[in-house]
């Protein structure tokens, strides 16, 4: 090849590369991942008018760790959901304060827990180490709880992962406590094992009492703890991702019953009698369920959200398609249980 032809060939290659990269950038800008548009006032409006709604994340995980939030009416089912101007991987909300686990932007290649208000404006950002898994806000919005995978990426392989559960003071946006540092008792024995992992926090109405999963020695337990006391005690065995009913009497959770390929059966535990009720859902569900009311629970399955009766009767039904991480906001003063 002569020098002139080489130059021509290079100019052609350069043109191809410029055009190709340009198209790729334009396509990327077009697809986007952040919330585009969406209402900024719908959540505050629902809160003010006490209109019962369910807040959830749209899309599925294949779109990345985040999805645009949406608000669907519970009073008038079937009305189209309202898209909100905020994107999160996991979301939880209580009147006044929400927790949004999302990918950090810019130079940081990690995740952050964002505390947002009814106006969907982020008030505090807290960088977190690990991959977000569960988020819950206490009913009065005082504390948030975040579970992250530090190693491993799935709850399915027992003993193959470790988690880190942090309580966040929602007012200051700072870390309030780490469950791994709590004093844990089982019966009258103090647990001191190094391999203690906590995940899936659920708060009682007083925001001090909470329930969570404790894994140690290859077994999982339900613990009941006190945020102020920095203590927790074991209540029951084989409980993962507990969720306290609005009336505070029952815990819905994942009970490990099957092989590693389909390990869990959704079950409800009566805290007064410790009686277990398996739900009618036969598929293995990996989600921290959300109570729709005192009779029904919601849970994510295959990128959609289903509903099942909490007393084990009936058949599960589709609640809405395309989404996850539902938070039920009834705004009602729930029956005090504590």
């Amino acid at each position: 090849m002569t020098a002139a032809r080489r130059r021509t060939a290079f100019v052609a290659l350069l043109a191809l590369c410029v055009v190709g990269a340009g198209v790729a950038v334009l396509a990327g800008l077009g697809s986007g991942g952040a919330a585009k548009g969406g209402s900024t006032g719908a959540l505050a409006d629902a809160q003010q008018t006490r209109r019962p709604v369910v807040l959830y994340r749209t899309g599925d995980r294949s779109q990345g760790p985040g999805g645009q939030l949406a608000l669907a009416s519970l009073a008038q089912p079937g009305t189209p959901a309202t898209a909100l101007h905020l994107s999160c991987g996991r979301v939880s909300y209580a009147p006044g304060a929400g927790l949004c686990l999302t990918q950090a932007k810019g130079f940081a290649a990690g995740y952050e827990a964002d505390v947002f208000g009814a106006d969907l404006k982020v008030r505090h950002r807290l960088a977190v180490e690990g991959v977000p898994s569960r988020a819950r806000v206490s009913p009065d919005g005082r504390y948030g709880a975040v579970t992250l995978f530090v190693t491993g990426h799935s709850y399915a392989a027992a003993g193959q992962f470790s988690t880190d559960t942090t309580l966040i003071d929602m007012r200051s946006g700072r870390e309030a406590a780490q469950l791994e540092r709590f004093a844990v008792t089982k019966g009258d024995r103090q647990l001191t094992a190094l391999d203690m992992n906590f995940w899936g926090v659920t708060f009682a109405r007083d925001s001090d009492r909470f329930y969570a999963t404790l894994a140690t020695g290859g077994k999982t337990y339900l613990v009941e703890g006190s945020v102020r006391g920095r203590t927790a005690r074991v209540l029951h065995e084989n409980v993962e991702c507990p969720s306290l009913s609005p009336d505070g009497t029952r815990i819905a959770y994942k009970k490990r019953t099957g092989p590693a390929s389909r390990p869990w059966h959704l079950t409800v535990l009566d805290l007064a009698t410790m009686h277990e009720t398996p739900l009618a859902e036969t598929r293995s569900i990996d989600d921290q369920v959300e109570w729709l009311d005192d009779r029904r629970v919601l849970y994510g399955v295959g990128g959609d959200v289903d509903v099942a009766a909490a007393d084990g009767t009936g058949r599960p039904a589709r609640f809405f398609t395309g989404g996850g991480s539902p938070t039920v906001l009834s705004w009602a003063a729930r029956t005090p249980a504590s």
Partner: peptide, 20 residues
């Protein structure tokens, strides 16, 4: 930063640069 989660854009731009 301009297109969050547009990993494919990063890979494709990288490819054209490598080609160059």
């Amino acid at each position: 930063a301009a297109a969050p989660l547009a990993f494919h854009t990063v890979f494709l731009v990288s490819f054209f640069l490598a080609l160059l």
